[in-house]
Design a binder for these strands. Sequence first.
DNA 1: ATTGCTTTCGAACGGTCGTCCGATTGAAGG
DNA 2: CCTTCAATCGGACGACCGTTCGAAAGCAAT
Lengths: 189, 189
Amino acid sequence: MLAVTQQEKILDAAYRCLAKDGYAQTSLRQIAAEAGVAVSQISYHYQNKEGLLLAVVARVAQNYHHYMQGYLKPTMTPEEKGEQFILLYQKVLREDPELFRVLYDLAGLALWSEPFRQRVRDVFAGIMDQITKEVFTEELLRRLDYDYTSATLASMFFGALFGIGVQALLEPENKAIPNSLGALTVVFR
Amino acid sequence: MLAVTQQEKILDAAYRCLAKDGYAQTSLRQIAAEAGVAVSQISYHYQNKEGLLLAVVARVAQNYHHYMQGYLKPTMTPEEKGEQFILLYQKVLREDPELFRVLYDLAGLALWSEPFRQRVRDVFAGIMDQITKEVFTEELLRRLDYDYTSATLASMFFGALFGIGVQALLEPENKAIPNSLGALTVVFR
DNA sequence: ATTGCTTTCGAACGGTCGTCCGATTGAAGG
DNA sequence: CCTTCAATCGGACGACCGTTCGAAAGCAAT
C-alpha cells in the first residue's frame, strides 16, 4: 500500500479485485472504486482493460521470481532445490492461496485471448526453465538413471505443483491436500 | 447432434460455445443462436444461466466416466491401469483438447461460485477415487515401499495429469508436452 | 371442435459493461 | 501572472447482459 502514484494504486486495486472476485466478475468500475479513482483514469493510464490486466500479469510474474530468488541458494543440491520448490508452493497454498487463484484465473484468461496466452506462456516458461536448470540437472538424471529429458521431468514436476494447487483451492476445508506436494519427492529416489 | 428435444439442443450448444469462447465470453444469446432457439427457452428449460452451466458440468462428468469405463479392464495390474490413465489423457490432449479447455474453464468457475465449487469438487473427487482404488492399491504401495497414503499419491498423480494438460493448452504448438505425461510412470518404479 | 397444458417465441425491461469526451485541476516554466 | 500540458474527474454513449412476460403455437384428451 506504499503506492503513491495513481497508476500504482490502480494496479494494486486490480490485483485485489482479481483475488477477491476473479476476472469474469471484476469490472473496471469495481477496480476504480477500490483504488479510489475515477473510472476514466484506467483508460488514461493503461489504455484499456486488457492493458491493465496484462500489467497485472507482469507484476505477478515479477513478484514470483523475486520470491523464488530468496528460496534457492547456489550451495543447495538439486534435490534440495526441488524440495524448496515444494515447500514454497505449500507455503503459498496455506498462507496466500489468493495468489494461486489469481494465477489460475490469468492462465484461464490465456486460453482464450492471444495476447494473454503469449504473456502467460512466457511466465510459465520462465518457471519451467528455472526448474529445468536448477533441479533436473544432467548430473541428477545420470545419478537417478532417468531416460527422460530435463525439460520433460520439469514439465511433469511443475504440472504436479500446479494441479495439486487447483485441488487445494477446490477443497479449502481439506488441509491435507498441500501435503500431497510432498509426495512429489518420489522423483528423487 | 442426435439431439431431438430443444432441451438437449440447448445443452449441446452450450458446450460448443464454452469450448469455442470460454465461459467469460459466452452469453445466453450466443448459446440460443447456436442452438437455433429463442433466448427465453433457456430460462424455461434450465431456470437460469447457472442452471444451464451446472447441467453442462453434469454432462461432462458423465461423459468422462463413461469414457474411462472403456479404458480400465479388471484384469489389468495397477501399473497398467495407471498407464491407461496416462494414455487417455494424452489421447484427449491430442485429439480433443477442447474437452480439457472446458474442464479448466468450469474448474475456474468453481473457484468463485459456491454451487459450482461443490459440483466440480464432486467430479474431481470421483476421478481421484477411481485413481486411488484402481491404481494406488495397498498391494502396490507395499511392493514399491511407499510411505504415502493411496489418496496422497492419487492426488499427486491426478494433479500432474491436470497440470501438464494446462501446459499443453498454453503451448499448442509444442506437440511434445503430452509426452511429459509419460514421465509420470516414474512413480511405478 | 373445443378445452387445457406444455412448449416456443419475440419483445421488452432494468442494469451493467467498457469506452470516450469535455471540463476542471494542478503544477511547472516563461 | 500567464501559459502550457499532463493529470484527474464526472457524465454520457451505445452495446450487450440475464431475466421476465404476454401472446402464439403445438398437441393431447375430451
